[in-house]
């Protein structure tokens, strides 16, 4: 996949902890060059960044310890960033408890909103905004693991996808994306393609 000027797109995946390899594999299949980001200087030259699933407390503490909080905030003001699950929590401005957050998306999240691991689930959800190959929109298979909910959106943030009961599980604010679920755990690359469009 190419960015402006015919340059091959280069996307970073925050690799402090979590399922960053699954994101890299998906991006690799889409022909995108990927870089693991663990230190601030590794953000240089990236067209976009994904913050993977994992434990948000661990990712936040490591980001703080290695001086990544401010560089990530600045990156998010200039380039697309997508957080899945723990990544969505990390992007939020409020997670209802004390833990390091980037606070660059106007969303309020509730951690472990569905309960413990025995309540983790999979469900097909309608997401008509996703690219379609045949003109018909097919549901997206969403995997929720000890997942957070996006309790509310404010400011420029908008709800992008909801559960059948209306609770928000994906939000967008300009070129920032947050999802409670894990497209990287499925074989469906439509969400990754949707994100890459923002980076073009």
């Amino acid at each position: 996949m190419l960015v402006g000027g015919g340059k091959r797109m280069k996307v970073g995946v925050l690799a402090l902890q979590g399922d960053f390899i699954e994101h890299q594999a998906m991006l690799g299949r889409l022909g995108v060059e990927t870089v693991q980001v663990r230190l601030p200087q590794e953000l240089e030259g990236l067209d976009a960044l994904i913050i993977p699933g994992g434990e948000s407390t661990t990712i936040g503490k490591l980001a703080e310890a290695f001086g990544l909080i401010e560089p990530l905030r600045q990156f998010g003001q200039q380039r697309p960033v997508w957080g899945t699950c723990a990544g969505a929590i990390f992007l939020s401005k409020d997670a209802r408890r004390q833990q390091p957050l980037l606070g660059i998306m106007d969303i309020m999240v509730v951690r472990n909103a569905f309960g413990r691991q025995v309540n983790s689930f999979e469900i097909d959800l309608d997401m008509p905004f996703l690219p379609s190959s045949n003109g018909h929109s097919t549901p997206f298979h969403a995997v929720f693991i000890r997942a957070p909910l996006i309790e509310s959106v404010s400011g420029n943030a908008q709800a992008l996808a909801t559960l059948p009961d209306g609770r928000i599980v994906a939000a967008r604010q300009g070129r920032l994306l947050a999802t409670s679920f894990h497209p990287e755990l499925t074989g469906d690359d439509r969400f990754h393609r949707y994100f890459l469009e923002l980076a073009k």
């Binding site: 690799a15 402090l16 902890q17 691991q117 469900i123 097909d124 549901p139």
Partner: peptide
């Protein structure tokens, strides 16, 4: 489709979220 719990994908999935961790 209805919501499905306790699938092997979500069992294995939690471990995937623990990767790179202690």
């Amino acid at each position: 489709m209805e919501q499905e719990v306790a699938t092997f994908a979500v069992k294995k999935g939690l471990a995937q979220m623990l990767k790179g961790g202690v």
